[in-house]
Design a protein around this nucleic acid. Structure first.
Lengths: 259, 259
DNA sequence: ATCCATTTGTGCGTATGTATG
DNA sequence: CCATACATACGCACAAATGGA
């Protein structure tokens, strides 16, 4: 027989998944659970901590607080559509469009600075670790909630050839098109996706609840002569999914239309 | 000032990330941390629970147990290479090859059964929810450790046309080629990736430590006339990453060779 | 096979702090 | 200012797992 706290967690989990508790509902208070199950507060906390770590609930202190069932809002990001392969329109526009098409309210915030390239990213760009590079950071929000964090790095010599990259504001036509106009098209990209628990920095910037995993999405863009940029996007788990379409897209479109 | 348990967690986290503690090292015992920091055992457990949830350590009871720094082994899965677009070789062979090329020892286990399609997957296949379907499950292991879990669903009517799909053993030429030979090539696939905390079933099958996120990778394969299968692969986080190459792969290959 | 020592796992009770309405 | 809810922290006890004597 599993320990009490796991049994209690399992019961509550089932009631959440089955829809007995809906999004935004309050679970019974800790005191109530202590009485119902005849256990100590410690045991109740162990049980509910599991649910917090699974991302099913969040805890809110205060008079009208409690343990709330979290929303399972899901946003789709079409990785093979944006900026690939001929559709060279600005990625931020693509993102705005996708979010709005899904019925949500997008917004974003920009920052620009010069920073030292972490070793792992420097290798992808084929430059030395810790060399300086242009870093454009974009925090994207959906309905006011931080949703993803994108850091795009450009090698320093490229920034000198294309000084607009150092602009602290959004670049209207998009950096990908800007680079293409200056002789650095990106006919190929390599993406790399991994699920991980967020670093403390990401928890803060994305306002993540404990137990929320993130999807780290790294895209390296290649000009014919060299890699020109690497973007690291941290997607808040649960809130985002990334979609790729490979092969003959018409086949899929035909099927969708047929439905 | 942050609470004590967070301070203690932060110190230990820094020492792990900075390499002061290496993979496999034991952290000080709970008793030792109580003495060092002058706190109760409860506080030590709160602190170390954070690190467990971040996937940094695992706890092992027993005489020579302790809190061990977890390995950060990383395996790469080339999603756009296996079985796409002309290279129609068996996916399991592709996986074996990739793992071996990275210096690890692959193995896998098969199961086959008929089961009811979950609503979400039924929609992708364009059939009714809860209708029966052929389910092929493959548990893949690296160096004996469960690494990923793949469930592939085939609509029932397709299984009747291609009865080998119901074979409980591995299909030598691979199911994708088998289907192509029987008139169901897959010129297009759609992939869908999301980071999530594992369901209890996944925790058990993949032998996951608490706090390990997973990458759920869903691939829908389309024949010209219809979708023919949907595969759901659960990758244990930390252990796996998924890579896509989009556009002109030669551009990337040239750059690699040039290094 | 038994017993013992060590380390984490589970559970109890209590007290005080903090956030919110 | 109060009431309610979760947050942090102390202390204690016994169970379970593991490895060695």
């Amino acid at each position: 027989m599993p320990p009490k706290y796991r049994q209690i967690a399992a019961e509550l989990r089932d009631r959440i998944i089955s829809g007995h508790f809906a999004t935004g509902d309050r679970l019974p208070t800790e005191q109530r659970l202590m009485d119902d199950y005849g256990v100590s507060r410690n045991t109740v906390r162990l049980a509910t901590a599991l649910l917090v770590n699974e991302g099913l609930i969040e805890r809110v202190p205060g008079r009208l607080g409690g343990m709330l069932v979290r929303a399972q809002l899901m946003l789709t990001y079409h990785a093979s559509r944006a900026e690939m392969p001929h559709g060279l329109w600005p990625e931020s526009d693509a993102w705005f469009g996708e979010v709005q098409a899904q019925g949500y309210q997008p917004s974003q915030r920009f920052e620009m600075r010069i920073a030292e390239l972490p070793a792992e990213l420097a290798e992808r760009l084929g430059v030395e670790a810790d060399s300086p590079a242009g870093l454009r950071r974009c925090i994207r929000m959906v309905n006011g909630q931080p949703s993803s964090l994108q850091d795009t790095w450009y090698p320093m010599d490229l920034c000198e050839q294309v000084p607009e990259l150092l602009s602290p504001r959004d670049i209207p036509q998009g950096t990908t098109r800007l680079l293409a106009e200056r002789g650095f098209p990106q006919p190929a990209v390599e993406d790399d996706l991994v699920a991980m628990m967020p670093a403390p920095e990401h928890v803060q910037l994305l306002n993540l609840a404990a137990g929320t995993p993130v999807l780290a999405f790294t895209r390296t863009g290649f000009a014919p002569s060299r890699p020109v940029r690497v973007s690291v996007t941290i997607f808040a788990g649960h809130l985002n999914r990334v979609v790729y379409t490979l092969g003959d897209a018409d086949v899929i479109a035909r099927h969708r239309d047929g439905q």
